[in-house]
Amino acid sequence: MRDYLEFEQPIREIEERIEKLTGSGATRGSVQDEIRKLKTRLAHTEIELYSRLTPWQRTQLARHALRPSVLDYVGAMCRDFVELHGDRAFGDDRAIVGGLARFNGRSVMVIGHQKGKTLKERMQRNFGMPNPEGYRKALRLMKLAEKFKRPLLTFIDTPGAYPGIGAEERGQAEAIARNLLVMARLKVPIVSVVIGEGGSGGALALAVADRVLMLEHAVYSVISPEGCAAILWNNPAKAPEAAAALKMTAHDLLNLRVIDEVIPEPVGGAHRDPHGMAERAAKVLSAHLSQLEELPVAELLARRYEKYRRMGAVAEPPPPAS
């Protein structure tokens, strides 16, 4: 059973009619003709709809309940995955998963946000909103990767770091900041993929990388459209406007030179063909990783530093007349 979003209603209608006709078991030529016609219309409608998504519609797609998660990608792309748990200090935050895996013949460290699929799992994983111990688990695994010279792959999909009392008590800000600092200088190649929702600092804390990739319908922003609308418009219902103003889609970020490549999704989104999606993502990831693996460590770090140093838009004053 598909989970339709509001803007997918036209598709739902056609699909339901097809189902009804197929279910009727009629073999008359006219019925078969009708089904064929509807299927053609469906294909056209889909291409039309998904090629012109608004930023807000993309945000909904990026948050889709059935969207493949880091564990789905690891399952499809890697072998011998061993999940490693805990920060060795406070606990195991299930909103972040990580571990060693074999990707195209080499061992890599994989870390990502995990939202969960069923309601029960979502609650266990706090809807993919990590606490400080989650970021500190990630930090521990990053250092493990560095120690054994294994490249790091991270998968980003979070509404944001959890805003809670415990999170503040245990230093949420410090945990995020520490990851930014360590990732900026980690002596192994890092490739990050935004697979769903890139929610602010909570996303960035796993996404300082040599290459940052985004799936076509993923979004990545400094604040959620709802949060931005509540603050700047004083009205959370203005989220669609905020989503557009924030320039948070994959192509926006490519234009702003914040990411390096957009990975196309199957028509209708990654969840319509998770295997095809994983195969495509694996190819792109592998290509980037191979390029990075050829660089000497000093060069890798220098390029990573320069990349971030250049980010932003400032106007220099005209040089003083002499």
Binding site: V182, A184, R185, S221, L232, L246, Y308, M311, G312
Partner: peptide, 24 residues
Amino acid sequence: ARMQEGILSLMQMAKTSAAVARLG
């Protein structure tokens, strides 16, 4: 972060943290 500069504001967190790392 300054919302009006969107993702570029977020990237200032990475940029400044990288600079502090070198200072360290």
